[in-house]
Structures are given as C-alpha cells and as structure tokens.
C-alpha cells in the first residue's frame, strides 16, 4: 500500500469538519479525535454514529457539529446501518444515479461496539463491507452514567462495579475486541491514542486508504474526565501515561502483519497511570501489584507476537 504518511502536525488538512459548539464535557478527548478524523476523511465521507456520548453531544437538534453527512439510528446497529449506506452507494454508482467516490465511516463507543453492537459489527466485517469502523473506547457506559462494559479494565470502579467491602471494582479483564476484529481477516486493525496524533492520523489514513480492499478498524483509547474521575486538564497526559506504562499498546495489524507502532523502551510503573484516576482510588498496593502483573503478562504476549522486545521492562 502506498499510503502517504503524515510526518508532522503541519501536514494535517487545515479544513475544519467537526466544528465547535458541541456539548462534549470540558476535557473530553473525543473532540480532538473526531476533529482529526474528519480532517483526514475530508468532504466525501458519510458518517454513521452509534448512540453514545459523541452522538448526543454533537447533534442537539437543531444544531450539529458535523460538516459531513451524518446519520444516527440506534445503539447496537452502527455496523448494520453502515453496511446499508455502503451497499446503497455501490448500487447507485453502478446504476449511474451517483457519480462520486464516497467513503463510509462508522463510529461507536465501547458499549456500542464490544457489547450490544458486536453482532452488527461482526456481520459488517464478515460480509466485507468497505467501511472504516472507529471505536472510541472510554472503558464504560459513560453516556448513561459510568456503568461497566466489556471494555472496562480490571480493578476499575464503575457505578455497576462499585468498590465496597466485597466488590473491589471490575473483576474481569478487558475484552480483546481487536483480536476479535482481526479474526475476521480484515485488511487493517489498529489501536491508537489521542496523545500520539501523528500515529493516530496515519492509522486513520491507512484505514481509509485500505477501504478498497475491505473493512478496517481503528480502536482509540479515550480518557474520560467524568467517568475516570480526573482533572479535565489531564486527558492527553493520561492517554500518554497509558502508553508509557504499557496499559495501552499502540499497534497495527496490516494485512495480518503485527507491528507495534510506538515501542516503549522502558515502561513506567502502572501506578503512575492509576494514581491520578478516581476510578482506581480504592486500590490497595497489593491490588496495584496485581494490575502490574497483568500488564507485564500482556507486554510479554505482545513481545512474543513481534518476536523481539518492543516494549521494555518497568524502569
């Protein structure tokens, strides 16, 4: 693939397509990600949005933040709606009723993607619809008030996995949605972070360029000031700490080839990532140690896949 990659922030298109006035929380990291996504996608892209924070915050009737054609139908069906849009474009072009190349982008949160929307997503991937799916993952049902989802990490407090005398926050590990998507043998799967905009932009760009071959998937970790309980000024810093501690590994699976796009020579201890967040405040030293071990295991697994040490030990 001959995707021309971005080298600096100055390479990004100047045009604004996700505009101000939306009702996202102060400090929410979805806004900048959508701004970047729409810049890279450009004018000729239709956006399908699952129900969620982004959808309710960006389209309070009669206002909208979207300069692209945009549709929301329900929570669990962004994959199916996007399939319909893509099929329609294909047939209308074939019949001469449409003379334009239009890309289709589906966007869903973690609940709308890994839980209730998994079936529609799998159908879309399996049928090979040329849709780029962006998962913005804030690791719980934030729009309804911080209930746990399949993407909530081990140990995290949520309103349905509270920390009490018996329960100590979420007790199950985060669902590996990227492996599930990759199992559909799609041309491109990537994880990304708003703290690494060049890496993020290039992943969006590749995912859009590869659409000629089939569906693509980009999974972005979205620090959530209200749900993770941190100061609104710290969103990007936490996104970076997630990567630096190995809690969130930036990689891509390009035509089956796994590559870590941001190697970390020396990891910071997970404690540095957990400490600023209220959702982990209840954790004891032993419990933090357990999370450290889980991360160590995951790093080992990733290094094994790559065949060398791309993510180093805790410094």
């Amino acid at each position: 693939m001959s995707t021309k990659l971005y080298r600096s922030l100055f390479d990004f298109p100047r045009e604004e397509r996700f505009v101000s006035g939306h009702r996202l929380c102060a400090g929410c990291t979805i806004g900048p990600v959508m701004r970047l996504l729409t810049k890279i996608a450009g004018k000729d892209a239709i956006i399908v949005n699952a129900t969620g924070c982004l959808e309710v915050s960006s389209t309070p009737y009669p206002y909208t933040s979207w300069r692209n054609p945009w549709i929301h139908v329900a929570f669990e069906n962004a994959g199916a709606v996007a399939s319909g849009v893509e099929a329609a474009i294909k047939m209308l072009k074939k019949k001469g009723m449409l003379n334009k190349d239009i890309k289709v982008i589906a966007i869903g949160g973690d609940g709308g993607t890994v839980d209730i929307g998994l079936q529609a997503l799998s159908g879309m991937l399996e049928r090979g619809h040329k849709v780029m799916y962006v998962l913005y993952d804030n690791e719980a049902y934030m729009n309804t008030g911080i209930q746990r989802s399949g993407a909530t990490p081990y140990g995290a407090w949520t309103t349905t996995t509270p920390a009490g005398k018996v329960w100590r926050g979420e007790w199950r590990p985060k669902k590996d949605i990227d492996a599930i998507v990759a199992a559909h043998r799609v041309p491109y799967v990537a994880t990304a972070s708003p703290a690494y905009p060049i890496d993020l932009a290039n992943k969006f760009k590749k995912a859009l360029d590869y659409l000629e071959e089939g569906p693509t998937f980009v999974h972005v970790l979205i620090p959530c000031t209200t749900g993770w309980r941190f100061d609104p000024s710290l969103g990007i810093k936490l996104a970076r700490l997630a990567v630096e501690t190995g809690m969130w590994i930036l990689y891509e699976i390009d035509h089956g080839t796994f590559r870590v796009t941001y190697p970390v020579k020396k990891r910071k201890p997970v404690k540095e990532y957990l400490k600023p967040q209220g959702r982990f405040r209840h954790l004891t030293e032993e419990e933090i140690e357990k999370i450290q071990k889980l991360v160590d295991q995951e790093v080992e697994r990733i290094n094994k896949i790559v065949g060398k040490e791309v993510i180093g030990p805790v410094a």
């Binding site: 239709i46 139908v73 709606v81 319909g84 099929a87 329609a88 209308l92």
Partner: peptide, 23 residues
C-alpha cells in the same frame, strides 16, 4: 445489492442506511 444480514434488527437497520443514502 442483497445484504445478507445477521439478524432482522440489522436487516431494518441496513435498510435505513440504504434508504437514507437514496436507494
């Protein structure tokens, strides 16, 4: 275009996507 959806929920969801695009 026949969309071999994985459920009726998706059948009508995809139909909305298609109709909204002008098909």
């Amino acid at each position: 275009e026949m969309i071999h959806v994985e459920s009726e929920h998706s059948a009508l969801s995809a139909a909305i996507g298609a109709a909204a695009t002008g098909a």
